[in-house]
């Protein structure tokens, strides 16, 4: 995508965010005691939202020049895959526990980025997960066991 085009699109997205922020400031409930105050809980958000709208509009009106942003389809998929893996981590850590989730996350990440040796992949992933589990145990940090809570006893 040409840089200017993406720059403008991002600036417009920021403008929309700033506009929503500005409008949502009306919903901030100001206590009656602050009615006469020159600066209530709403004032700062109003000012910030307005300034952000002006600045993002300026960028959108005059986007900057730059190199065309072109990544291979594979590169996008790889990055989205990593984001999805992180989502998996957030979802699984309280269910599968720290060790299994970490090992699966790392193995998935290594594979996604091109590690083809299954033994290296499994050993490094499992080794890191178990190693950190021991480290945190030494530091008295209680990690999640998830569905395997019974094994703790």
């Amino acid at each position: 995508m040409p840089f200017r085009q993406l720059d403008r699109a991002v600036a417009l997205a920021v403008f929309a965010f700033a506009a929503a922020y500005f409008l949502l400031a009306f919903q901030i409930r100001v206590p009656p005691s602050s009615d006469d105050s020159p600066l209530s809980a709403r004032s700062f958000p109003f000012a910030l939202g307005a300034v952000a709208m002006v600045l993002s509009a300026l960028v959108a009106l005059k986007p900057s020049h730059g190199d065309v942003i072109a990544f291979e389809r594979k590169a996008w998929l790889r990055s989205l895959g990593l984001l999805a893996l992180m989502g998996f981590y957030a979802l699984a850590v309280t269910r599968l526990g720290f060790v299994i989730t970490t090992a699966l996350f790392l193995a998935g990440g290594f594979r996604l980025l091109g590690e083809r040796r299954p033994l290296v992949l499994a050993l490094v992933a499992a080794g890191t997960a178990v190693g950190f589990w021991f480290l945190f145990r030494q530091l008295d940090v209680e990690l999640d066991w998830g569905w395997f809570e019974d094994l703790k006893r």
Binding site: V14, A18, Y21, L24, A25, I28, R29, V30, P31, S33, S34, S40, A41, F44, P45, L48, G49, V51, A52, L55, S56, L58, V59
Partner: peptide
């Protein structure tokens, strides 16, 4: 302009949560 906009966005993110002075929640 982008640097200033990012600084303002940072200020905006800082307003999320309970406002200490008035005790009201924002965003």
């Amino acid at each position: 302009i982008k640097a200033l906009l990012m600084a303002v966005l940072g200020l905006m993110l800082a307003t999320i949560g309970t406002d200490i002075a008035d005790g009201v929640e924002r965003y």
